[in-house]
Design a protein around this nucleic acid. Structure first.
Length: 800
RNA sequence: GCCUGGGUGGUGGAAUGGUAGACACGCGAGACUUAAAAUCUUGUGGCCGCAAGGUCGUGAGGGUUCAAGUCCCUCCCCAGGCACCA
């Protein structure tokens, strides 16, 4: 009996796979139906793969191998997201130049990924920090620029005090940097933006894609579409002066008693009377001083002051005071109509300011209403029937909303609009390790894009790259000083680099054509392979990478560079590995390092244990001893393969197991697939298995433990890879057992079980059940008022 | 506060409304061994019982049903997301 030796076996097969290229997809001419199986590429911020990488890449590879055995031409590439903060911060920490750390980290990670034994194609050498790649990132920028989707503007932006750079809204969590967790301040700076807001509507479409509902919801929430209207209210004190407000509930206008303006409103002072000027200015200054965090504190009492002017309610003609208040955001028009009876925030504000709170909507016809609502109720926010609303009284509020909008539009003092919470994507970074923005500033011609033929704008080698608040690229005279592409006069380069999320927003288009030097990709080639059929990665990217990638992809689609509208057809998020129920972290000291376990048990056992721990999408809890269970299983499986026997009795178990494995694999329930194989092995080891049975089992195990499977496949006398085989199918005839165990219940309680023929008649089944001792005893206690028969499952009696 | 997921043995986790706890870890007993490890056999939700069996059990409380972890209502707790967006 040969003992299972993972070190020797795994090295052997990794070498064979590399040599035979059995897993390399034919990118030019896929002979079978293509399957683009993709995992989010790693950033080289350390030299070793951590358990999270394994938890991601192991199952993704298992899935790819499963699909290969399903008969697809599987393309499963992997590259590196090597520009950006993670790689740069690693360099700063170690004091070694990022060009160097990135190189060594990538080489080490590649070696480790190879040792994992996945079918990943690493030979495409896609690295976002290589000139061959970032040349085309710059090209993407230029395409957006040509379309007016990249623009430069001064705006209040998020500034991370520790990373010393600006950040996009998506990269700020609770007023803190998504990466380093330090505080983020607001600063006015001139920066480059991508006009993602132009695509807000298209990004809400999600056509023909299978994504987790919650991810779509998160994105929808982030985009934050709201339908409403903008209306001009006349100002009582100044002829011809109007203020424009935004509301989604114009139907409540008869209950509007004030107008409030955001402190940041550009025209705020127009609506302030002379005597209030100083007071308002003081309030605005105070508001600006408060950090974003303070302003958004939940239980903070609302503040605001009167501006001394009044707006005229366009429906009632009533004069309403105008306030400046810091609970009003620069959203919509930066001014709102306050309807205290039907909005909780307005209610709170009105109470503080002593304003009227008239109710104008009731739940149903005939309900009492209050001229002055005393207490807030959540139901006041609902739609219902109009009251005290002039000609609209008695209408359903939704109908009234429609009619009022029509009136407003006909009379010309307002219009329907759609607003989004989504802001444009700020892509400038004042950091060294990123793709230079391909723009040149000329004294005469102004802002000039670098012509395509001059790409790439080479990222300069700079020794002093530690962030100081200004892009380190600015310190290189050689880089900065250039000539204008238009007039050839003296000019300066843009010194900021691009957000690393720009690099990663299109890499999946590069893989199928990764060595192209003429274009970012060949359309025909990419159209063959897109969309990505399966995309697997962490859920934390929902409103960052996954949103950006969809945006860039849609732009490329609209420009005619790709056929598909969505980049990722199916999306799955893997769960997280915990230790003793807690997130692993260096500070807690509960980090599990894969290496020691891999060298002890081998890659197959390690990846299988990760899959066995729990459902892939839920994650699982690591247990140092738990891996022993999988290791034992592998030993037992290997032993079973060397023991003969088998027969029809074993076939029954086998086909059931094969069915269960296939079913579980399809649903990515890898834990259940492994359990089914274990269950069979417990039986098969006792009874022995025939060659034919062994072959089926090896195929079913192959995606989960590829090295082991290849070794056994060879032992069984095969010359070619097991991954060229078809996925085994359970014989339906073997799945239908003629005898089944029925559960017998009396009054819903299980009293006995009985073996009966599956196709037994109801009458006969009930008769046999009645005869059981432990059943008849309960039946005698009363009268049987009902009999239940569920074929193949249950026989039940109701006794009274 | 709002929107998602979740709460099942000592542990990780299984269960198209139909025998709750598959599979595994751990633990107990036994075999092999001078011994230990490994391996093998076997048991393992709680309580009562020598056993047969009984009884209670899927976060809490109600409900629907012959039958509820699963469906409905109310509430509690945990994780993630959003958070004054008018």
């Amino acid at each position: 009996m040969i003992k299972y030796d993972p070190q020797q076996i795994e090295a052997k097969w990794q070498a064979k796979w590399q040599e035979s290229g059995v897993f390399r997809a034919n990118l030019e001419n896929p002979s079978k139906v293509k399957y683009y199986n993709l995992t989010m590429f790693p950033y080289p911020s350390g030299a070793n793969l951590h358990i999270g990488h394994w938890y991601n890449y192991g199952p993704v590879d298992t899935w790819g191998r499963f699909m290969k055995m399903q008969g697809y031409e599987v393309f499963q590439p992997m590259g590196f997201d090597s520009f950006g903060l993670p790689a740069e911060n690693y360099a700063i920490k170690t004091g070694v130049h990022p060009a160097e750390t990135t190189r060594t980290n990538i080489d080490k990670m590649k070696e480790q990924i190879r040792a994992m034994g996945g079918m990943y194609d690493l030979d495409l050498n896609l690295e976002t920090s290589s000139p061959e790649y970032y040349k085309w990132t710059q090209w993407v920028f230029l395409k957006l620029y040509e379309k007016g989707l990249a623009y430069r503007k001064e705006a209040p932006v998020n500034w991370c005090t520790s990373c010393m750079t600006v950040l996009a809204n998506e990269q700020v969590e609770d007023g803190h940097c998504e990466r380093c967790k330090n505080e983020v301040l607001q600063k006015n700076l001139t920066q480059w933006f991508f006009k993602i807001t132009d695509y807000a509507e298209k990004l809400l479409e999600y056509k023909d894609i299978e994504w987790p509902e919650r991810t779509i919801l998160m994105q929808k929430n982030w985009i934050g579409r709201s339908e409403g209207c903008e209306a001009d209210f006349r100002i009582a004190e100044v002829d011809e002066l109007k203020i424009r407000i935004f509301t989604t509930r114009f139907d409540t206008i008869y209950g509007t008693t004030f107008v409030a303006i955001a402190p940041e409103h550009p025209d705020l002072m127009t609506y302030v009377s002379d005597e209030k000027r100083d007071e308002v200015q003081k309030y605005v200054n105070e508001a600006k001083k408060k950090s974003e965090l303070e302003r958004q504190m939940e239980d903070k009492e609302k503040t605001g002051i009167r501006t001394g002017m009044h707006a005229i309610n366009p429906m009632t003609g009533e004069k309403m005071p105008i306030f400046v208040a810091d609970f009003v955001l620069m959203y919509g028009t930066g001014a709102l109509m306050g309807t205290p009876a039907h909005d909780e925030r307005d209610f709170e504000f009105a109470k503080i300011m002593g304003l009227r709170t008239p109710q104008v909507i009731v739940e149903k016809e005939g309900d009492q209403y209050e001229d002055d609502v005393k207490e807030w109720k959540e139901s006041l926010h609902d739609h219902g029937i109009m009251v005290a609303s002039g000609p609209y009284t008695g209408m359903k509020s939704l109908d009234a909303l429609e009619k009022m909008c029509q009136q407003m539009e006909i009379e010309g003092w307002g219009k329907r609009v759609v607003n989004y919470r989504l802001r444009d994507w700020l892509i400038s970074r004042q950091r060294y390790w990123g793709a230079p923005i391909p723009i040149i500033y000329c004294e005469k011609c102004g802002e000039v894009p670098v012509p395509e033929e001059d790409l790439p704008v080479v990222h300069p080698h700079i020794e002093e790259y530690v962030p100081k608040g200004k892009s380190p690229l600015a310190t290189s005279d050689e880089f900065v000083n250039t000539s204008c592409p238009k007039c050839s006069g003296p000019a300066k380069r843009e010194v900021d680099t691009m957000d690393t999320f720009v690099c990663s927003s299109w890499y999946f288009l590069r893989y199928p054509d990764a060595t192209n030097t003429e274009a970012a990709w060949d359309k025909e080639r990419v159209d063959k392979w897109m969309p990505v059929d399966m995309y697997i990665g962490g859920p934390e990217h929902a409103c960052m990478h996954l949103l950006y990638a969809r945006f860039i992809h849609k732009v490329m689609h609209d420009l005619g560079y790709v056929e598909t509208e969505e980049p990722f057809k199916r999306l799955v998020h893997q769960g997280m590995v915990t230790k003793d129920g807690a997130k692993m972290s260096k500070s807690k000291g509960n980090v599990v390092s894969p290496d020691e376990f891999v060298s002890e048990f081998g890659s197959d056992v390690f990846r299988m244990y990760l899959m066995f721990m729990g459902p892939f999408t839920e994650g699982g809890d690591w247990n140092d001893r738990g891996i022993m269970g999988v290791s034992r299983f592998v030993d037992r499986f290997f032993r079973m393969m060397q023991r003969d026997g088998g027969g029809e009795g074993v076939d029954l178990f086998l086909h059931k197991a094969i069915f269960q494995v296939g079913d579980a694999m399809e649903k990515m329930h890898f834990n259940k697939a492994i359990a089914a194989l274990m269950e069979f092995t417990n039986e098969g080891l006792k009874r022995g298995t025939s060659l034919k049975q062994k072959e089926m089992l090896v195929k079913a195990l192959a995606p989960l433990a590829p090295h082991l499977a290849e070794e056994v496949w060879e032992m069984l006398g095969h010359k070619e890879s097991v991954f060229l085989e078809e996925w085994p199918q359970a014989d339906p005839a073997m799945l239908v057992e003629d005898k089944v165990t029925y559960a017998v219940q009396v009054n819903g309680k299980l009293r006995a079980t009985v073996e009966l023929f599956k196709n037994i008649s109801e009458a006969e089944a009930i008769k046999s059940a009645r005869e059981l001792e432990n059943v008849s005893k309960y039946l005698e206690e009363g009268e049987v008022v009902k009999e239940v028969f569920v074929p193949g499952r249950i026989i039940g009696f109701v006794v009274k």
